[in-house]
């Protein structure tokens, strides 16, 4: 298996209280697959992605990528965060060159950077500063930067959560195009049902307290998805029903907590 998560547990200790955030996560991802991790806030989906990125460590269990256990960050995994996290002291082009420079000449890195900036349709903005372009454009630069390392696995942590609706749907198209062109494996964390239905081959629906996998939904529709509205509606309702019980659970716990005070 390309990426496999085996029995992953994660707990945080805060003021002598240990809280279980992720419990028994078991998930396999095939090469070239687009998998969304969908769940309400607090279900640990971002934490799971951080563990895959190597920025956090599992308390128990392990994650293997192409047979190798993940111990820390690595170039075979590129990551896009909710904020673009571009370095303001570098131009757009230099930001995309940033992961490349230690290993190749400046000229080579620049050519590569231009290639990926064109892929996200920002070929005309190479010399701009990050703060001179819009939030959606910044996020596209961040995608180009992650792609520039040519990672086997692209991790995206609610990358469009902070953007407006129009910008978001434009970026969906770009991501889908990149996915089809580069055939990268993508792990995409989101809380938007519509977003996951539009983009994924599979949706991993997560529940909360502790974070567990509720159900994995397979979507076998042709892309672009706008044609198969009816079938998607069925899945949307199904996921909504799954998540509703999760949100009820959170509300119930909050009320209990309030009553006990």
């Amino acid at each position: 298996m390309f990426l496999s998560m085996n029995n992953v547990h994660k707990s945080f200790t805060n003021n002598d209280k240990t809280e279980l955030v992720l419990s028994d996560i078991q998930l396999d991802v095939k090469e070239g697959e687009f998998v969304s991790i969908l769940g309400p806030s607090g279900c640990g989906k971002s934490t799971l992605l951080s563990i895959v990125a190597g920025l956090a460590h599992a308390t128990e269990g392990s994650i293997e990528l192409e047979g190798k256990t993940i111990k820390g960050p690595g170039k075979e995994r590129g990551m896009v965060f909710q904020q673009a996290a571009l370095f303001p002291w570098l131009t757009v082009e230099e930001n995309v060159m940033f992961p490349l420079l230690p290993d190749m000449s400046k000229k080579e890195a620049q050519q590569k950077a231009h290639h990926y900036l064109q892929m996200v349709q920002l070929g005309a903005y190479t010399k701009h500063s990050p703060h001179e372009i819009s939030g959606g454009m910044q996020q596209r630069v961040a995608i180009a930067r992650a792609l520039a390392m040519d990672p086997a696995l692209l991790l995206m942590d609610e990358p469009f959560g902070a953007l407006d609706e129009q910008t978001r749907s434009r970026l969906h198209e770009i991501v889908e195009k990149i996915f089809l062109e580069t055939k990268k494996t993508i792990l995409f964390v989101t809380h938007s049902i519509a977003e996951s239905l539009k983009l994924s081959d599979r949706i991993v629906v997560m529940g909360t307290q502790p974070g567990t996998i509720l159900e994995v939904i397979e979507l076998n529709f042709p892309r672009p998805r706008s044609q198969s509205k009816e079938e998607l509606l069925y899945y949307e309702e199904k996921i909504q029903a799954l998540l509703k019980s999760e949100i009820d659970k959170v509300t119930e716990k909050e009320q209990k907590h309030a009553a006990s005070r």
Partner: peptide
């Protein structure tokens, strides 16, 4: 910034 740079090795 630190996290992002770490993912870029």
């Amino acid at each position: 910034f630190i996290k992002a740079a770490k993912t870029m090795n």
